[in-house]
Amino acid sequence: MRIVFAGTPDFAVPSLRAAAQRNEVVAVYTQPDRPAGRGRELTPSPVKREALLRGIEVVQPENFKAAVSKAALRALQPDLMIVVAYGLILPQSVLDIPTYGCWNVHASLLPRWRGAAPIQRAIEAGDPESGICLMQMEKGLDTGPVLLSQALEIGANETGGQLHDRLAALGAQVLADGLGLLRAGIRPVPTAQSEDGVTYAHKLDKAEARLDWSQPATVLANKVRAFNPWPMAEAQVAGERLRLHAAVALDETHDATPGSLLRAGREGLDIACGEGVLRIRTLQREGGKAITAADYLNGRPDLRVA
């Protein structure tokens, strides 16, 4: 099959590799190079780097509003367009170009967590599972019928980064299954999404990472997991701002003011919350690297409290 692939971040790379197996990827669409790093140099996306390694033509339009952009896609005569975290909304006029339309690999069990940040929102909400949906794209935001899906259990201490990597691999697997069916002449049966249970995974905002100690410890522990590795939870602890890499909620009652340091030892820093206690296990001081609570206390012996 002649496939056009559209994707941008690391999450999409395993799916590109799956698409390139036993199919002809005639072009890869990805976001234009963006400034990155301290030098703010223009940097190609992970998908562009993978495409160039494979010798695949790379196309980087700002959008598909111009007629010339649609004409260029039509000239590729694609059987199918595969979209994975591309970052652009595709108009119906683009979705209609490929023979079999456009497939999207989405990192949630639709209709739960439509939108930009389904992986992090699932952890933040305390969901027990996530998964991958291979969806036939339509004009709405992640509203199209589901072709294939597979669930995946979220680990009790799993971070956003860890779940991201597992779902990226699972997405490639589900996509490969769908492509195998299509090559065999079997079109996956589209199943309309339920009208019940629709939730939206809004884009992450760095301001969300500032923890509010008046919230329950379970809520804060989920935020710490969800926002690792970005934007990384941060909070005022013992008079300084720390970034929190790992923490767990303790089901413990207290009458202390939220944000108070209750205990500090090798097991962690125990902070009073609106409900329960948050034990910080791994943290990062400004300008430093991630360290254990025990190592942190070596530099802050004044904080050791029983």
Rank of each mutant, 00 (worst) to 15 (best):
S130F: 04
M135K: 07
R279G: 06
I154S: 08
S108T: 01
A156C: 11
L250P: 01
A246L: 13
G140N: 11
P32C: 13
H254C: 15
L244P: 00
R183F: 04
V26H: 05
Q21G: 01
D142A: 08
R121E: 12
A169R: 10
D196G: 09
L76C: 00
R38W: 14
G131V: 01
G115E: 07
A107N: 11
G276N: 13
I119Y: 04
E234P: 00
A290N: 00
L152C: 11
P190H: 12
L90C: 06
N23V: 11
G160W: 02
E153C: 06
A117C: 12
A67E: 13
C133D: 02
E252F: 12
A235W: 02
Q31T: 03
P78Y: 07
G155A: 13
R281T: 01
T191M: 15
L80S: 00
V277Y: 00
L175N: 04
H202C: 09
D205Q: 10
A247F: 01
G131K: 08
S45C: 05
R2C: 05
P229E: 01
E195H: 09
P188Y: 07
N104W: 10
T199Q: 06
P32H: 13
P111D: 10
L250W: 14
L175M: 07
A207Y: 03
L152H: 13
P14N: 08
N23Y: 10
S15V: 06
R38I: 09
G274C: 09
V68W: 08
L53P: 00
R304I: 15
V237P: 02
A168G: 09
N23G: 06
W213E: 02
T8I: 05
L147Q: 08
D295Q: 14
Q60Y: 00
A246R: 13
N222Y: 01
D295F: 02
N228E: 08
V224L: 06
L134V: 04
E50V: 04
C102L: 13
K139W: 03
A36R: 14
R121C: 06
D165G: 06
A209P: 00
A246G: 03
F5P: 03
S93P: 00
R279Q: 14
A107F: 07
L182G: 05
